[in-house]
Every structure is written in structure tokens, then in C-alpha cells.
Amino acid sequence: MDYKKVNLTNLLNEIKNILKEKDVRLDDNFIELGGNSVMALLILRNMELNYGVSVNLAQLLGEEIGKVTIIPLEK
């Protein structure tokens, strides 16, 4: 199982849920899809709680979704 691919899929699903948007792709930009910093913080929290990973906030707000760094949390 590809760790990065799984976590990007999880991130896409979290973004879809927050934005109530069905068509979100790795080359999309979160802000251009209608996201904002409060929504981004909710996504980061959900990713930590549900998947045990940390998502780079600055990248989520400024990069293509597929370029966002996702790091496993220490247990």
C-alpha cells in the first residue's frame, strides 16, 4: 500500500466533505475551490484525529492539493 497515495486520498475526502464538493482533484487549489483558513484548520484536525497524520497548513492554503506534505505523527 502506497502511504502517500492513501493519505492524499484521505485528504481529498476531507476536503470534499468540508467543501461539500464532489469533484476535487490533486491538481486543484483548496482556496480556489472556495476553501478558507478556518476550513483548512478543521481538515488538519480531522486528518490528525482520524488518520494520525499532520498536514502542512501553508501548503494546503497555497499549493495544489497533490503537493501538500503529509507526515505521520509520532505515537
Rank of each mutant, 00 (worst) to 15 (best):
M39Y: 05
E48I: 04
N10A: 15
N56A: 11
I31E: 13
V6Q: 14
V53M: 03
A58Y: 07
I70V: 15
V6T: 14
K20W: 07
K75Q: 15
L11H: 10
Y3C: 06
I70L: 08
V55K: 01
N10C: 08
G52K: 07
G34A: 13
K16P: 09
E21Q: 11
A58N: 05
K22T: 08
L42H: 10
I70Q: 09
L49T: 09
T69R: 11
L41D: 05
F30H: 07
E64V: 05
E14K: 15
I31N: 14
N56S: 15
L57G: 04
K5T: 09
T9H: 11
D27W: 01
Y51I: 14
M1P: 01
L12F: 08
E74H: 10
V6A: 13
Y51P: 10
G52T: 07
N36F: 12
E32M: 02
K20V: 06
D27Q: 09
K5N: 07
I15V: 08
I43Q: 00
F30A: 00
K67D: 01
Y3K: 07
P72V: 12
I65P: 01
I18E: 12
L8Y: 10
L8T: 08
K5V: 12
R25H: 09
L49A: 13
G66E: 01
L19W: 06
I71D: 06
K22A: 11
K67I: 02
A40I: 06
R45E: 14
Y3D: 05
M39P: 05
N50Y: 12
I70R: 02
T69L: 15
K16D: 10
D2P: 07
L60A: 05
A58V: 06
I70Y: 00
I71R: 02
A58D: 09
L19C: 00
L11G: 08
K5I: 10
K22Q: 07
K4R: 13
A58C: 07
I18R: 03
D23C: 00
Y51W: 13
M1N: 01
M47G: 00
L8E: 10
E74I: 05
L26A: 09
I15F: 12
E48P: 05
D2M: 08
P72L: 15
V53P: 04
L11M: 15
V55W: 04
L12D: 01
L61G: 03
N29I: 06
N7F: 12
N56C: 10
L41W: 03
N13V: 02
N29D: 09
N13I: 02
R25A: 06
A40G: 05
R25S: 13
T69I: 14
G35K: 04
I70K: 08
Y51D: 14
